[in-house]
Nucleic acid binder design. Structure first.
Length: 559
RNA sequence: UGCCGAGUAGCUCAACGGGUAGAGCGCAGCACUUUGAAUGCUGUUGUUGUGAGUUCGAAUCUCAUCUCGGCUGCCA
C-alpha cells in the first residue's frame, strides 16, 4: 500500500477527540478500550472496531485497554479469551498494561449497586420475567410501575444481600434501576442491573451467584479505567442515556463519553457471532478458523495479512450511517498488499502433460527466474526445463474461443520465464479427453523474442521431473447471496455456496514451493495468491489455500 | 401508530463560519507487458431522498414530507 506522507482522512470521531484534546478535556488525554465478550471468535467487523480504538489511542498518544466484557458466564469461555488475545496481537496492536476483565470489578460493581439502593435509585423486583414484560409497555405505549417499586431502602438492601447470598432461586428476583417507566426510551424503563445466575464463571468460579448486566457494568468499567472516549456501535445509541444516568447517579472516578459509529456490514458474508457459531456447530465449516469464515482467524488462515485488514478498515471510513461495504474492497486491499509483497511462483493446478519432442530426455536446464517482476531485492528462484512438463488444462483449447491467446494445436505459446513452444500433436484417450501434448521448443527464444513472428500468449508451467505435488484448496465466497441474512423466508444456511471450497489434488508446484511456510504468501502466476495452510499441511503434503484470485479481465471477456 | 439515528456518484466516504460537488473502489477505453496480473494515462455516472422557504447564491440554514435502520432479553 502506498502510504507515504498520507494523513488519515478525518472522520467525526477524530473530530470530536481533536476538539476535546485541544480544549484540554480529560487533561488532554485519550484513553479508549476494546471490550469484546468472550463468547465467540472476533470477525472482520470487530477488526474495524479494534483498528478504530487502538488506532485512535496511538494517533493521540493515548492508551487502549483490552477488556473482556464477561458478565454472562452462560455463554462465555476461556478458549475464546485466548483466541481473542491472539487475534488482537496478530492485527498488530498492543493493549495498555494487563488485560482487563469486567469480572474483576464485580466487587466494586456490587458496591455501586448498593450505593444506588441507598440513594433510593434501585429496587429489588419480585415480578416474574413475563410480568415485567407486561409492565414494561410497548414501543408506543408507556409502561407502568411495578408494585414492588416502592419497597423501602432497608428492605431492598436486605433482599439484595440475600440475592447475593444465594437465598433465592435463579429468575425469582432482579435488581432494577428506578428511572422512568413512561420513558420513550425503553432502556430507561427501570432496567434490570443485576440478575441471579447460579452458574460458574470462567474467571471468578463460584464466587458469585448474581451477575451485573451490561448497561450497569460497561459504563462503570469505563469509568474505573479512566476511559475518555467509549466508542461503540450504533445499536447502543439508545443505551447512552442509561450509560450517562448510571454515572451521574453514582460517585465514580470519571464520566467517559460514549460515541457510536456504524458497524461494518460486508456483502456476501455474515457478521453475527451467533450465526457464525451456528456454521461451526453445524459443521458447515471446519471451525471458527475455517478459511471461508470472516473471522480474523479465518482470514489469517486464508492468507490475508494483518496490514491489508488494517488498510481496509482505514479505507472504509467511520460514520454513523449504516451501509454495506462491497467484498471487492476487502479483496482490493489484500491484492494490493500481496502484489507488492508476495514472491511469485508457478503451480499447475490441473496438469496436462507436455512432451518436448526436440529436447533430449536426459537433459535438464536450470533457469533463474526473478521472484518479483518489479522488485529485484526479492531475488531469484530456480526452476527446471526438461523434456516432460506440465501446463494447465485451461491453457490449451482444441476449439479456442474468440480472442483466446494460449496454446492451440499448431500454435505457439511462451512458457513463462522460459522458451516458446509449439504444439505439434494432441493425444487423446479412448473417451476423447486430451491427455498429452507433443510439442517442440524454439531454442532461440530463451530471454528473447522469437524471430519473424509474434507470440502473444504466456503460460505457466512446471517440470514434470522436478515438480512437487500439492493439494490446493480453492476458496470462494461462503454465500451465494449478496445479503445472506436479508431474506426472512430463506435462512443463511440455505444460501451457502456449495463451491465455496473446491479441493484440487495432484497439483504440480515448482520445487521451491516445497519450503513454503504458513503466513508467507505467494502469487501463483496467472492464478492468484496462495498460502500454505497452517493446520493441514505436513512435511509430506503441501496444502495451499487460495487467498484471492488475480483480477481477471479474461473472465469478463469470455464470460 | 413512540423514541433515537441515517439519507451526497453502482459501493465506501469527502466537501463542516452558505459560493452551482470530489476521492478511493468498481466500470470503460488506450498505452505498456514473457502474469489476460501489475503499472501509467483518459474517461464514466450525481436534479446532494423529496417539496417548499430564507438568500444574489444552499449538499450546507429553516419548515414540511418520504424512505431505511435500531430499540419492547433476567444478551452484549
Amino acid at each position: 500500500m502506498s502510504t507515504p506522507d498520507k494523513t488519515p482522512p478525518s472522520h467525526f470521531i477524530r473530530q470530536i477527540i481533536t476538539k476535546d484534546v485541544s480544549e484540554g478535556k480529560n487533561g488532554g488525554q485519550v484513553a479508549t478500550r476494546f471490550p469484546p465478550e468472550p463468547n465467540g471468535f472476533l470477525h472482520i467487523g470487530h477488526a474495524k472496531s479494534i483498528c478504530l480504538n487502538f488506532g485512535l489511542a496511538s494517533e493521540y498518544d493515548g492508551t487502549c485497554n483490552l477488556r473482556f466484557d464477561d458478565t454472562n458466564p452462560e455463554k462465555e469461555s476461556d478458549e475464546y479469551i485466548s483466541a481473542i488475545k491472539s487475534d488482537v496481537e496478530w492485527l498488530g496492536f498492543e493493549w495498555a498494561g494487563d488485560i482487563r476483565y469486567a469480572s474483576s470489578y464485580f466487587d466494586k460493581l456490587h458496591g455501586y449497586a448498593v450505593q444506588l439502593i441507598e440513594k433510593g435509585l434501585a429496587y429489588v423486583e419480585s415480578l416474574t420475567a413475563d410480568e415485567m414484560r407486561e409492565y414494561r409497555g410497548t414501543l408506543t405505549e408507556p409502561g407502568k410501575n411495578s408494585p414492588y417499586r416502592d419497597r423501602s431502602i432497608d428492605e431492598n438492601l436486605d433482599l439484595f444481600a440475600r440475592m447475593k447470598a444465594g437465598e433465592f432461586d435463579q429468575g425469582s428476583m432482579v435488581l432494577r434501576a428506578k428511572i422512568d417507566m413512561s420513558s420513550g426510551n425503553i432502556n430507561m424503563r427501570d432496567p434490570v442491573i443485576y440478575r441471579i445466575l447460579k452458574v460458574e464463571h470462567h474467571q471468578t468460579g463460584s464466587d458469585w451467584c448474581i451477575y451485573p448486566m451490561y448497561d450497569f457494568t460497561h459504563c462503570i468499567s469505563d469509568a474505573i479505567e479512566g476511559i475518555t472516549h467509549s466508542v461503540c456501535t450504533l445499536e447502543f445509541e439508545a443505551h447512552r442515556p442509561l450509560y450517562d444516568w448510571v454515572l451521574d447517579a453514582l460517585e465514580t472516578p470519571s464520566h467517559p463519553q460514549q460515541i457510536e459509529f456504524a458497524r461494518l456490514n460486508l456483502n456476501y458474508t455474515i457478521t453475527s457471532k451467533r450465526k457464525l457459531k451456528q456454521l461451526v456447530d453445524e459443521n458447515v465449516v471446519s471451525g471458527w478458523d475455517d478459511p471461508r469464515m470472516p473471522t480474523i482467524a479465518g482470514l489469517r488462515r486464508r492468507g490475508y495479512t494483518s496490514s491489508s485488514i488494517r488498510n481496509f478498515c482505514e479505507m472504509i471510513g467511520v460514520t454513523k450511517s449504516d451501509g454495506t461495504v462491497d467484498m471487492g474492497m476487502l479483496e482490493f486491499s489484500i491484492r494490493d498488499d500481496l502484489d507488492k509483497n508476495a514472491p511469485r511462483a508457478m503451480c499447475v493446478l490441473q496438469p496436462l502433460k507436455v512432451v518436448i519432442e526436440n529436447y533430449p530426455a536426459d537433459a535438464r536446464e536450470t533457469l533463474s527466474v526473478s521472484a518479483h517482476p518489479k522488485n529485484e531485492a526479492m531475488g531469484v528462484r530456480e526452476i527446471h526445463f526438461t523434456k516432460e512438463l506440465y501446463i494447465d488444462q485451461n491453457d490449451f483449447a482444441e476449439v479456442p474461443p474468440p480472442k483466446f491467446k494460449r496454446l492451440i494445436e499448431g500454435g505457439e505459446v511462451r512458457l513463462r520465464g522460459s522458451y516458446v513452444i509449439k504444439c505439434n500433436e494432441v493425444l487423446k484417450d479412448a473417451d476423447g479427453n486430451v491427455i498429452e501434448l507433443r510439442c517442440s521448443y524454439d531454442e532461440n527464444t530463451l530471454g528473447k523474442k522469437p524471430e519473424g513472428r509474434k507470440v502473444k500468449g504466456v503460460v505457466h508451467w512446471v517440470s514434470a521431473e522436478t515438480a512437487v505435488d500439492a493439494e490446493v484448496r480453492m476458496y470462494d465466497r461462503l454465500f451465494t447471496s449478496e445479503n445472506p441474512d436479508g431474506d426472512k423466508e430463506v435462512s443463511f444456511l440455505d444460501v451457502v455456496n456449495p463451491e465455496s471450497l473446491v479441493v484440487l489434488q495432484g497439483c504440480k508446484a515448482e520445487p521451491g514451493l516445497a519450503k513454503a511456510q504458513p503466513e508467507k504468501p505467494y502469487q501463483f502466476e496467472r492464478e492468484g495468491y496462495f498460502v500454505l495452510d497452517g493446520k493441514d499441511a505436513s512435511s509430506d503434503m503441501l496444502v495451499f489455500n487460495r487467498t484471492v484470485t488475480l483480477r481477471d479481465s479474461w473472465a469478463k471477456i469470455s464470460g
